[in-house]
Amino acid sequence: MSFLSYLINGISLGSIYAIIALGYTMVYGIARMLNFAHGDIIMVGGFAIFTMVSTLGMAPMVGVVTAVAVCTILGVTIEFVAYRPLRGASSLAVLITAIGVSYLLQNLALLIFGSNARQFTSVVNIPSLKLADGRLSISGETMVTIAACIVIMIALTTFINKTKVGQAMLAVSEDKGAAALMGINVNRTIAITFAIGSALAAVAGALLCSTYPSLTPYTGSMPGIKAFVAAVFGGIGSIPGALLGGIILGVVENLSKAYISSQLSDAIVFSLLIIILLVRPTGIMGKKINEKV
């Protein structure tokens, strides 16, 4: 029974990673950049909910909606101010700028909210589910997280495959120049991608802080890195890959925390990544790129 409960918690953690990884993977797929500031947008989402719910006493749902709005605007603004001028510059320059943005967000949060950890009130108020005579208990947060992940995956896949904007995203990620020639507004498409990614980060922030209720300006950075690992794991740029990578990562992390060593769980997760990449250099679901001379 305890194995099952670790497994379910792992899937829940993995679902959070998957939602964050979706943002990473979409941005990478379309703009070919590692958005290191993505993890910090999660933190901003967390603080937005914290301010709305704990400070201003609003309903949790209002808090989540505000967080999504704040993060979407933030994501688009960051793209416009920091990344758009660098389009066409070397990928390393964009990477360093993203790191600068990440420092900026962390230090702004540090300035406004201080370095002390804040107690986050869960946005989920569903009682936990007791199974098998109470030996297996699934918390409301876990159920909501897994459900949210499934809904987001289905919605996003439909959006990309069935709508014009989604198709435009695919076209831009395939070939920017050709997409522009077909009448697609490349800049706007990239901005929409950032908006979706950041909105997802806000949702992930709400779920993450509800499950692990402690909020500091650095809350987002480690889950951000893990989600990035998940995205690479599943094959960066691939949406089902992000889901698969996130879930595997979450399950492995939770099981190794439970059965091997809590201090070594990160090392185990990262070793798994290295092994996968050595066997499949572009991740589990990544496209194989043939080199042309």
């Binding site: 990478y28 590692l34 990928s91 890195i225 990035f228 690992v229 690479v232 960066i236 060593s261 201090q263 070594l264 990160d266 090392a267 990262f270 070793s271 990544l273 290295i274 990449l277 050595l278 250099p281 572009t282």
Partner: peptide, 28 residues
Amino acid sequence: IPVLRLKGDYLAIVTLAFGEIIKNLINV
């Protein structure tokens, strides 16, 4: 030997992973 077979951003993430593994192992 294993890592340098990868390219670009994949190499970056694997080196990052190695750095974290080393830090983790020393901590235990």
